[in-house]
Design a protein around this nucleic acid. Structure first.
Lengths: 192, 192
DNA sequence: GTCTATAACATGATAGAC
DNA sequence: GTCTATCATGTTATAGAC
């Protein structure tokens, strides 16, 4: 039984505190001293775990993707009608963003604040996740062209990822309701 | 006749070069020396036009809102069926993002990288723009609750604003087509 | 695995000449 | 309105003790 969120130790602790700060402030505005303070160590100690600030951030980005891919694959295991499958995957994506640590959130909000080399290194894994979605939607909308599927996936991703800027998991709207609203708007529009 | 995009001079030039850099790199990663280099002046000269880096960025943010509000109001002047009105406003919002200088883009991509005081100062104007949309959508979807209208506006904004991360105005997809795709997905879903 | 001390550099900002 | 020169501070990163 996993009774609660055991705070990670050592390297993992550095990663998750760093990710949380990158989410709030972006890459450049977050200093190693700030991260160290959150972990309750000194800045120089971070270099025992990571080669550089860029290395640390690259690791955070990759972890963010891994969380998303993992969520997608667990949602894919369920066999359901296509509309429900899509809704499950929207829910899984939002779960990765809000319920599985700050890594995916860091990927979404801080990706474009990263130095170009760090961004470039994260792109292959990112493409892999996007391919999972493209394949799903190609099946769901078999009558659409590949470029239309791609376009509507981008619009859907925009809708999902921007929730990080305003959705409050402790508010009255639940994640299930949010996933439902986004999936419905995606599938049948607002008027339905 | 405005034959072409005359490069602005003086203070305006500083603002637009700064906005372009803030879009690409965020607030913290953009230095005054970088901005000065783009304007072809020295960093200290920026202080003749602005009190501080925060002042400069705050001015950029406000200009970004002003461009959006202006685009919205010119779209509102047209009297059309509601679905076309919404499509016109989506097109206007995207126009503000891609066709009227880097100010609106800076607002969208760099707003959350700004120091909290700067962000706070920009919120009233930002709220004003969001109210324009809420009022429009309340009329369009009179059967929905205010909170549902608000929710679906947030989802729509996410879809529109994230296009800044991937849409290429020089690519094969035109802004009109993009606006059409987003408005259609919003109004009737992907399947239509 | 964490510390202290420090190097090497970049940053925002100011003073004052022209 | 722009410049040069400079200050004070904060940054990433390294060296070496414990």
């Amino acid at each position: 039984m996993n009774g609660g969120p055991n705070k990670p130790r050592g390297r993992d602790r550095v990663m998750s505190e760093a990710a949380a700060l990158f989410v709030q402030q972006g890459y450049a505005a977050t200093s190693l001293r700030q991260i160290a303070e959150a972990v309750q160590i000194k800045a120089a100690s971070i270099y025992h775990h990571f080669d550089s600030k860029e290395d640390l951030f690259g690791t955070v980005l990759n972890q963010g993707i891994a969380v998303m891919v993992d969520a997608f694959e667990r949602a894919a295991a369920l066999d359901q009608p296509m509309d429900d499958q899509i809704k499950q995957h929207v829910r899984a994506h939002l779960g990765a963003l809000f319920e599985h640590g700050p890594f995916t959130a860091a990927h979404v909000t801080a990706f474009f604040t990263a130095p170009p080399p760090v961004r470039a290194a994260a792109i292959p894994a990112r493409d892999g996740y996007e391919k999972l979605w493209n394949d799903l939607l190609r099946v769901a909308f078999a009558d659409l062209s590949d470029s239309d599927v791609h376009l509507h996936r981008l619009i859907l991703f925009g809708a999902m990822n921007t929730t990080i800027e305003w959705f409050d998991p402790k508010g009255t709207l639940t994640l299930d309701q949010l996933a439902d609203a986004i999936a419905t708007q995606f599938l049948t529009g607002v008027t339905s």
